[in-house]
Design a protein around this nucleic acid. Structure first.
Lengths: 201, 201, 201, 201
DNA sequence: TTTTAAACGAGACGGTACGTCCCGTCTTGAT
DNA sequence: ATCAAGACGGGACGTACCGTCTCGTTTAAAA
């Protein structure tokens, strides 16, 4: 499905691959999921449809690679770790506010929404997503929490997977279903409540 | 969009309406979102396509009504309020475990998944969903939390909307993106962690 | 396949039918058989492809109807009988020369060539052609020969089918395979030789 | 286009050439014209597509060579001259009956039909066919008629080209368009009528 | 009780996109 | 240098649905 996984016979056109991924991402951003078509991607990329069908099993897989190649582009540069100033609450607020901003930008909102739909639809793609995108990102999140654990700010027996879900999934839900305003204030409230718990205050 | 909202000229065929909603729900459960079509719903319902287009603006709206009419069916019988034994934690676990079970049943999982996709896609439908389904359900959830507040189990200044999101959205996220096992144990862990917070223990 | 054979449910669009047949004939004349496509016919006719597939089983069937509707257009006006001046030889030469001229006109040569190819390919179409176009035309030809028979110019026991083939098939062969010049002189020579036979002179 | 015409640079693989022609002929016989493709021929011959495109300008040209190499295979053995027993009528009937039999054999009918279609379509191929296959065969036919002329059985001023067409084209037409039963009896009737003419009896 | 206008089932229509096949060209090793 | 293998941009295939648009045919309120 992608340069690194398949050993690559050496015949595949890198130019076409890039053009397809770029076109897919751009079109998803411009026309949205409902009007995103393989035909359209091929036309925009200046590529035959068969070249897409040859290398990707579905529209969702193309979109997945398009989003994946986006995150890989900035790997190493930034985003390779969550900020750690020692102040867990402030750091989390910073990150969640950034996520809120990203969701507010149509250039990201629409492709991510399209990918999310494909994942909801296709368990195989969901598994791929879980492995290739979700897990790496979760590791970063857990690393930050683990650092807090080691600093004695969080209990040692805290289940980090649950903790991560508690912090991040409210944003995801609000974003996907537009079930309420997705603001910096909301992000702050989520972080505060998650850290102290409902019982607290 | 539906019997109760539109005053109804009196001409509409209730039989067709029911056949359409039943067909939509059944087909969504059988073939999934990707292969759900208005053509298919009309055929299954034994109805002309125009009868669907006359009364609903989109496939998602049909699905919405189909799911809505489902919850209305059981209104009054059960689900009109969350259980309240006085033990908030136990009550929440009970409810979340039931939700986990519902998501595990393909007859519910698939239509709900299909509806979720439509909502992700269509802001207008999302607003309708928020008003007609999400808000009533959230009111029930908040009512239970408010009872706990009044019993002194939760702080008076707790933002109930955030609290509800904190408890329920992890399940929604895991379900939609299949990002991890969706078990009773997970539901329990979410409730415990949400109530006590990450700092606790 | 066509207005007259199928009883017609009354729903078919006559405008589309005509547009399709006209487009098919025109395109066959303009681009030739090799580049004649259903896609092209539909586009030229301003019609959805499905409207063609709904009513015709193959490209050849469309072309057949296009050619058929051409001959029907002039039925009654002229061509309803071969000329009969009493001079068989002169009459036949006249008809064959006209055929030669028709084959020389690209507006007829190319569609007829395309139809001929489809008939060569498709036995079902060949049968249809034999019944709907070939036989009526052969009846006209045989009628002229029969008149000559009755006038004592041809023997009573002459097999008219063979006679017709003897006169007309040389032109058809030369035309299809371009196996030699297709001229008025050739038409005359064929008529003379067929009438008198190889032994004669 | 073919071993004998091009002087042959010496680099060409004779094995590939034969495999291609055999595959083309066999496939034409098995799947018919409509489904005959260069891709299929290459696969069947175990040859790269480029090897076909390198040496032949079109699918029809391959088919032409395939048929041509067939007739060359039996050259010298038989068919190098028409039978001449002194009885022209009997000899012609013998030959035409053999032709009828050949057309009845799908292993010959289908490739020949495919080739005929290509010729109908492609004037260049028609010219090549006329020169390389039609003319040699016509020379044989005319040779037999010339012998009859010299024996005083046919008039000296008979146009042999027209005579040949008169005898052979009815069979060709019936075969191509399936416009009637193609039997030994028909072949006999054609020979008799052609020799004596329509006026006779 | 009869009229009459809407809603209905059916499905044809102009379209868009699907996923596949093949075109003719091109590139890459292996022989 | 030619070969097999096969990727490439492209065009057409025949199918599935889209949303709109007639068609008669129920059918239930108004006359």
């Amino acid at each position: 499905m992608q340069r690194r996984t398949t050993p690559d016979t050496g015949r595949r056109s890198e130019a076409s691959r890039r053009a397809i991924l770029d076109a897919a991402f751009a079109l998803a951003g411009e026309v949205g999921y409902a009007k995103l078509s393989i035909e359209g991607i091929a036309a925009r990329a200046g590529v035959g449809k068969q070249t897409i069908y040859r290398w990707w099993p579905s529209k969702g897989a193309v979109l997945f690679d398009a989003v994946l190649s986006l995150t890989e582009g900035r790997e190493g540069a930034e985003g390779t770790a969550l900020p750690d100033t020692g102040d867990l609450e402030a750091d989390l607020k910073l990150v969640l506010r950034a996520t809120v901003d990203e969701f507010a930008d149509p250039a990201y909102d629409r492709p991510l929404r399209a990918l999310s739909i494909e994942i909801t639809n296709d368990p195989a793609l969901a598994a791929l997503y879980a492995e290739r995108l979700e897990r790496p990102m979760n590791e970063l999140k857990k690393a930050r929490l683990r650092a807090a654990q080691e600093a004695g700010q969080l209990p040692a027996d805290l289940d980090l997977d649950v903790a991560v879900d508690l912090i991040w999934s409210p944003l995801l839900s609000r974003w996907l279903h537009r079930s309420g305003p997705l603001t910096h204030a909301y992000a702050d409230a989520v972080v505060e409540t998650a850290l102290r718990g409902l019982y607290a205050r």
